[in-house]
Amino acid sequence: MTAVPALDRGRPRSHAKRRGSRRTAKHPVAYLILSILALYAIGPMVVFVLASLKTPSEISESPLGLPGEFRWDNFATAWVEANMGAGLMNSVVIAVSTAVGVCVIAGCAAYALTRLDLPKPGVFILYLLVASSLPIQLFLVPLLSLWTKIGLYDSRFGLIVIYWAIYSPFATLLIRSFLIAVPKEYEAAARIDGAGEIRVFTRIVFPLVWPGILTAGLVAGLQAYNEFLLAVTFIQDSENLPASISLYSFQQGFSPNWALVSAAGLIMVLPVLALFIALQRRFVEGYTSSGMSG
């Protein structure tokens, strides 16, 4: 019963394959080099995934080989031992709050810059460009002292506020570029009908620029999830540690248990990978605009 459809499907597939290989044959060297580069990009991840399913002794006996038996319980052990459960929860809270906050802050600012009667928007844009290119190292030490004084040190909210500040300038410029592309006539018509600014923003402008806002939010959320320097500096209490810092402490030491470390690392990466593969076009778009703004 299964054989017949399989045979049926087999023919067109092999036909497609032949056509594909003919096109591939046009650039054999290109495909060869690209495959080597892909191996370089993905190979280490494969080793990592395999390590997370082995025993420590299997890793030291054959570091790159297949596991004798898939040890899924490494993940359960790492979840508890490396504190990845709590870490993941904290990271998700931090990333989502950062993304939402950045969207609101940057969305409002971009709206003011493009649509509202702001004096000298050019000065603000210059300030944004300067603020987004100042190194964290410049303000790190006084910021820590300030945060300690006003009680924001060692709290997730304190870290989130910092992320809002450092990721908003770029998001503002990104959303602004989307807003510029929307014709102002739409809003003018709504204002003539007596709509207030907030109504104009939520009903007319937002539906047209949400792809830009979503991209800005994704980029900010991912950056917050992966961020290291600020997280390691501003969070101390193990209850508030994000996954990145839980993993960092877990892999320290001269010879850690690599099986559990790999499992803990994968726990941190899998949500991001799933989100990236689902929304890769939007991610790439967001990062591309950050790299090409020159």
Binding site: M45, Y225, N226, Q251, S262, G265, M268, F276, Q280, F283
Partner: peptide
């Protein structure tokens, strides 16, 4: 692009 979306801590660990 996949390595780029992986956290620094994780790729350092790998």
């Amino acid at each position: 692009f996949i390595p780029y979306v992986i956290a620094t801590v994780v790729s350092a660990t790998v």
